[in-house]
């Protein structure tokens, strides 16, 4: 395939991966939570988009106004009910790994009992359309997904850099104790960050619903990929998640072209391996924070 064509496909998908990874890395940054249920929440978002599309004919892109807020509420509740009470435990991060993995499996089981374990996807008209540019083509669905992701990430960036709660979230990500010292109610900020992080998984699920097929267990392949992205970028780094997502997605696109489709996931793990050997803190991470 043409190099430009491969690059286009890699970048478009990379933008969506960046959206998927941002909520995950943010939760780690704010609270040192490794949320293994992040992808399961994406799948929940995808099923919500699926039901809205099947039963009400609502476009999956439009469904983001439902999946985002719905999963935001789930995130806030999750923090209040599960994470807040163990936040002072010295082994908090390890505990969150087990807790969120259990949560992911529970979500998978519940989805399985409702939707059964068969593949689903939403099929809006643009999902299979292409824009022909002569020597290269742009898949319409991926283009829309890419644009939606960039708009959402830009909105998140503006929120984090220009609003008071945004300042507080960034401060808490950089130094939780220092944030408390300057008067940030880190408890409330953590709940907000949880809401945003899980809400981002929800909107990503809307995109996932038409860009990919999914079934309740497909969160497992996604979480592996997303963890690779954020570790490569540097755990807890928002810029790192973005660069990692676009970069890895580009490399994966070329690997698939040269080596075959079985490399679509393998590439991420190989690159993760290489980056960890060369730069264990990730591209944007600081050595001492890992």
């Amino acid at each position: 395939m043409d190099v430009l064509q491969i690059a286009i496909l890699g970048i478009l998908l990379g933008g969506v991966y960046a959206l998927m990874a941002t909520g995950l890395t943010m939760l780690y940054g704010v609270m040192r939570v490794i949320n293994l249920a992040h992808a399961a929440f994406m799948i929940v978002g995808a099923y919500i988009a699926f039901v809205l599309f099947r039963d009400f004919g609502i476009d999956p892109l439009l469904s983001m106004v439902v999946t985002g807020p719905a999963l935001f509420v789930v995130g806030v509740l999750l923090y209040q009910l599960l994470f807040k009470r163990i936040a002072d435990n010295p082994r908090f991060t390890e505990m969150t790994v087990l807790l969120t993995f259990g949560l992911a499996l529970a979500i998978e089981g519940i989805l399985g009992s409702i939707f059964s374990n068969i593949y689903h996807s939403t099929e809006p008209s643009y999902a299979t359309g292409t824009i022909d540019l002569g020597s290269v083509f742009i898949p319409t669905g991926q283009l829309y997904g890419f644009i939606a992701s960039l708009v959402l990430l830009a909105a998140l960036w503006a929120f984090l850099y220009y609003t008071r709660p945004g300042y507080a979230i960034r401060a808490t990500m950089q130094d939780r104790a220092a944030a408390q010292i300057v008067g940030v109610n880190v408890d409330r900020i953590s709940a907000l960050a949880f809401g945003i992080g899980v809400g981002l998984a929800g909107v990503a699920g809307s995109l996932l619903s038409y860009l990919f097929t999914f079934f309740p267990g497909s969160h497992l392949q996604w979480i592996g990929l997303l963890l690779a992205l954020i570790v490569v970028g540097g755990l807890g780094s928002l810029a790192g998640a973005f660069v990692g997502a676009i970069g890895l997605s580009l490399i994966a696109a070329f690997a698939i072209d040269q080596l075959g489709p079985e490399w679509s996931y393998l590439t991420f793990y190989v690159l993760l391996f290489v980056i960890l050997l060369v730069r264990p803190q990730g591209l944007f991470g600081k050595a001492e924070t890992i």
Binding site: Y167, A171, Q174, D175, A178, A179, I181, G183
Partner: peptide
């Protein structure tokens, strides 16, 4: 605090803004 607890990735000015949170 003794470790100074500034926000390392924020500018000096942003740190002062944060001080007045």
């Amino acid at each position: 605090p003794t470790d100074r607890s500034l926000f390392p990735e924020m500018s000096v000015r942003e740190n002062l803004v944060m001080a007045g949170y």
